[in-house]
Design a protein around this nucleic acid. Structure first.
Lengths: 219, 219
DNA sequence: GTCTATAGCTTGATAGAC
DNA sequence: GTCTATCAAGCTATAGAC
């Protein structure tokens, strides 16, 4: 176990703090204090608070996007030249995320909680998500269009939107479902979510964007 | 058109500011400035910033909950003693919300944007949503249980969770779908969302919590 | 790279005149 | 109810010693 650099200590602390209190709920001093680092070092290493935030967002986005890209490529290649089954596309979209959330430790859970907030925030939802995730999302949308060739384009987009909302509320893990279900369901049980999210979302897509073109029929 | 009270001017301004920047992104002075009111009056009328926030949340929650309660009662009564159809329950849950968002003007859109953020925020998602909305949610869950008698309880809760996520991302109206769809879909087109959200969510519920008990069969 | 010191500003909240 | 004035605290960011 090697020594952590100051820059990484700041990133880790910032991630945890932003996840709990949002961008505006955290001061650069909070970050420094939480990282056990001199306050001036935050500005020395990153320039300003917003740059810390962007660095936090970027760090794990790259890892996730690579994993999801590979998962999608794998599915597409396996079924080529036929379109991939809907449930495998949705799984490729969600699995890496929920798996990291389940097994990646508190740091990953913090990151996802932050994503969950960002996606629903006017200031960041339209810009940060677009910047870090839309290129990959477009590839998934292409795969969906191939599998659901008769889908109306607007229907497809709104279905994706519903998926995005269900996914990001899951990430936020606010504990609301815990109290609503009297403890039966746990916000942090991402495995439980995943095995339900994929069929739920697939059923939604099929009801509006079907019929699904399976690997059987050749055009 | 009667003169607005200072208290209402503060509430209106706070709603708009909180919706755009979140609780921590807004100072009491920001609110006063935006309301064209002396800064000291915010504390005079509400005590502190958090009390302003709670008052903002409560004001429209009461209106919405009444409307949704009535919609649910109407549906249940119309089909009594049979369970209500799934799509009518989901419609009762969502219609008042999306209709207000569509036709209620900027003030309502601001309120819903705030709800969308709150629901995905660790600090408020588990407490504020619970406080203001869970009593009504429990009534909808009861109606769903009657209509989907074979549903596993955890499945039902997670399905509701997916609905909540899709709905609140819609409210947030971040403009992300606008850019993702190259302008084809508009974040603020809540009518377009509603006519897709209900069948999408119903399909999801049916795939996991079915079969639906219709008004035809008597036990 | 790290730290001290500090400039200049904004914050939430209140006391007291009107 | 409204306003001015103000406090103590916290804030971002930087300049400069080490």
């Amino acid at each position: 176990m090697t020594e952590k650099s100051t820059k990484d200590k700041i990133l880790d602390a910032a991630e945890a703090q932003f996840a709990r209190h949002g961008f505006d709920g955290v001061s650069a001093r909070d970050i420094a204090r939480s990282a056990s680092v001199d306050p001036a070092l935050v500005n020395y290493h990153f320039g300003n608070k917003r740059a810390v935030f962007d660095a936090v967002m970027l760090r794990r986005a790259e890892v996730l996007n690579n994993e999801r890209q590979q998962a999608l490529d794998f599915v597409l290649r396996r079924h080529h030249p036929n379109p991939a089954p809907l449930d495998e596309i949705i799984d490729a979209f969600t699995h890496a995320l929920l798996n990291r959330a389940q097994t990646g430790g508190q740091e990953w859970r913090d990151y996802f909680a932050l994503l969950g907030q960002i996606n629903n925030t006017p200031e960041f939802g339209g810009s940060i998500m677009t910047q870090f995730f839309d290129p990959l999302v477009h590839r998934f949308l292409d795969a969906l269009r191939a599998t659901l060739p008769e889908a109306d384009e607007a229907d497809l987009m709104w279905c994706y939107h519903f998926l995005s909302g269900a996914l990001t509320l899951t990430f936020a893990a606010t504990g609301r479902i815990d109290s609503l279900s009297n403890g039966l369901c746990k916000s942090t049980d991402f495995d439980e979510v995943h095995k339900r999210l994929v069929p739920f979302i697939c059923a939604g897509f099929r009801s509006m964007c079907g019929p699904e073109v399976g690997p059987i029929q050749e055009s």
